[in-house]
Simulated scan of single mutants.
Amino acid sequence: MRSQMVLRRLPFVVMGLVALVDVLVGPSLGFLPLLTLGPTFASVSGSVRRTAAVGALAVTICIPLAAYSHLLGKPQNNLTIATIAGITCASMLASWLRTRRERELANVRMVAEAAQRVLLRPVPRRAGELRIALSYTSAAAEAQIGGDLYEVVTTPDGVRLLIGDVQGKGLEAVETAAWVLGAFRESAYDQPELLGVAERLETSLARHLGGEKFVTAILAEVRGDDILLLNCGHPAPVVLSQDGEVRHAEPPEEGAPLGLGQLGLSLPKPYHVPFAHGDQILFYTDGVIEARNRDGEFYPLEERTHLLLGPDPQEALDQLRADLLHHVGGPVPDDAAMLLLRRHGA
């Protein structure tokens, strides 16, 4: 990368400038202590050995410059050399700590990538007449997984999918997401009805969740010319009809999130939404619609749905994600997952 190349050259450029200025100004002003900038900058991107070599080069430059200014052997120059040596040793320690931290971070990333492959497997891009696109943006800068979850499976009963959001953040949320995904992947093939799948998820969460923790989710099943939805307290998906109409697929009645069955709350009932050839439906988590810009304005998802009209579903969804990040002006404050289903003509 260009930035890495600049950082590698920076110590030599700085020491060259210090030497040039010292020669031009003369002994009236002492610029030689600024040679310590060389090993200091070297520790930012270089190894311990490279930092030591830059420090040795700084001492090598300092000696002839001191002789040129008639300072060689004087206490002032001896203190400068000692300062360069001390800063070099400190920079070598900083470089060692930095490289160790980078190795630890690389290991953490490898673990996160492995967890992502297990938990959030790549969804199929095609399933019969459906074209599927996915976008997932984690709120954690160094993480690729979080509390949002998704899955798409093709079963004898049709294409079934799940998108959800676990209450909370961190490793505990990831663990809960793992339980939900595991239960869905098993029950999606075993249960003939979508409500049965939701009941299996509720049973699984009842064994593992405590207190008042919950998971908002939508389960969906594509059959015939419509799509069956079961909304457990999740934001309603957006349907884009072939004729240009945009509407929210709101449930007939508000449903309780998964995991609250122990409080006496029953699961919601499935409902049908027309999903004809040429239609699209966008599932998303609340990290999308609750993303704010610097003025505190929420992301206007419904006004941006025209970005999904491109010929390729994944490219269209990538444009929507880029527009979301542009609206926020930086990292998203919460995990943001989007799943787009497009039904092609027969």
Rank of each mutant, 00 (worst) to 15 (best):
S47L: 06
V48T: 08
R49S: 12
R49G: 13
R49Q: 08
R50H: 12
R50D: 06
R50N: 02
R50C: 03
T51H: 07
A53V: 14
A53G: 05
G55Y: 01
G55N: 03
A56W: 04
L57S: 03
L57K: 00
L57G: 00
L57W: 08
L57V: 13
T60F: 15
T60Q: 02
I61M: 12
P64L: 09
A66E: 04
A67Q: 08
A67G: 10
A67C: 07
S69D: 08
H70K: 00
L72M: 08
G73M: 07
G73L: 05
K74Q: 13
K74P: 01
K74R: 12
K74T: 15
P75I: 14
Q76K: 02
Q76G: 14
N77E: 15
N77P: 02
N77C: 11
N77M: 13
N78A: 15
N78R: 05
L79P: 02
I81H: 00
I81S: 07
A82R: 00
A82C: 10
A82D: 07
T83F: 14
T83A: 08
T83E: 10
T83L: 15
I84E: 05
I84C: 06
I84K: 00
A85K: 03
A85H: 01
A85E: 06
A90D: 04
S91K: 04
L93K: 02
L93W: 13
S95T: 04
L97M: 10
R98E: 12
R98A: 10
T99G: 08
R101F: 09
E102I: 11
E102T: 10
E102K: 08
E104A: 15
E104F: 15
E104I: 05
E104M: 15
A106M: 09
M110L: 14
A112F: 12
E113K: 12
A114M: 12
A114G: 07
A115Q: 02
A115R: 00
A115G: 08
A115D: 04
Q116H: 10
Q116N: 09
R117P: 07
V118K: 00
L119M: 13
R121M: 15
V123I: 14
P124N: 09
P124C: 09
R125K: 12
R126D: 11
R126L: 02
R126Q: 13
A127W: 03
G128Y: 10
E129Q: 11
L130Y: 07
R131C: 10
R131Q: 13
I132N: 01
I132E: 04
A133Y: 00
A133H: 03
L134V: 07
S135D: 05
S135G: 09
T137V: 14
A139K: 00
A139L: 06
A140S: 14
A143L: 10
I145W: 07
I145Y: 06
G147H: 01
G147M: 01
G147C: 12
G147F: 01
D148V: 01
D148A: 07
D148E: 09
V152Q: 03
V152E: 04
T154R: 06
T154E: 15
T154G: 09
